[in-house]
Amino acid sequence: MSTVGLTHGWIMHINIRHKLGRDPWFVIGMILGSVLILLVLLGPPLTPYEPHDMSFRPLSPPSAEHWLGVNDGGMDIFSELLVGMRNTMGFGLLAGFVSLILGVAIGLAAAWFGGVPDQICMRLADILLAVPAVMILIMTAALFRPAPMTLALILSIMLWPTTAKGIRAQALVVKNRLHIHAAKQMGGSGSYIVVKHLLPELFPLYIIGFATKARMAMFMEASLAFLGLFDPSRKSLGIMISYALKYYYLDIWWNWLLPPVFLLTLLIMTVTFLAIGLEKVFDPRLKEAL
């Protein structure tokens, strides 16, 4: 299944686009995703107030001026929400992207060179897989209080192994195909073959890997923020939930607690649907750590 999809380049391409368009999860994911992206892009002009502005009456209910009311610190909840989602999403996309690049580079290198480099990379991947990434993040965050960007990069260093292993396995299959042998016979250099043949032929794996990694990173960002590991002045869905949860028994849970919970759930759900749809269409057998 996958092998066909992976080798016959663009002929299958049309078919795959057709199949993706018919997969309900992928379509729902795309629709939700476009709405969320639109919210993020239109966020800055849409944000009614500066989210750090504390000059409003604390805990006032939703009104025409404050669509979702004001939190305990006197900040406009709707503005917080937009900025928070942008931060959560940005963190996830960055960590997903960097871990994807690391995973692809290491996976391809391991498959192409084989032997000792392969062994080293894969043992390293095993070790990283055995270490819980959250704990490393918590430790660095608690000790050094790094910028969110730095944490995203550290997370991507912890997340590359699953992608690298998937890429390596598939690259080993492609590597022994006839057209690669032909390219070698023609005198194509290693870098030429890797860049021109292996890299594009594994493309479906990249988007699946990216979606699963971005999902994991968004989930982690929200959770770490919830646990209070980020700078408290940085807006994030996780931190909003954490603060609002302290007052959940008051009558403000529906305008303060529910919106960030809803938005975060929507965000994670969107990425999950996209990942599941892509996985189903591109390779039913490839079960990555979802």
Binding site: W25, F219, A222, S223, F226, G238, I241, L245, Y248, W253, L257, L258, V261, F262, L264, T265, I268, M269, T270, V271, T272, F273, I276, L290
Partner: peptide
Amino acid sequence: TVLEGMPEIGTGVALLL
């Protein structure tokens, strides 16, 4: 599949409420 997309924060808060 829908449940798979729900993060623990979401279901946890919902069940609590």
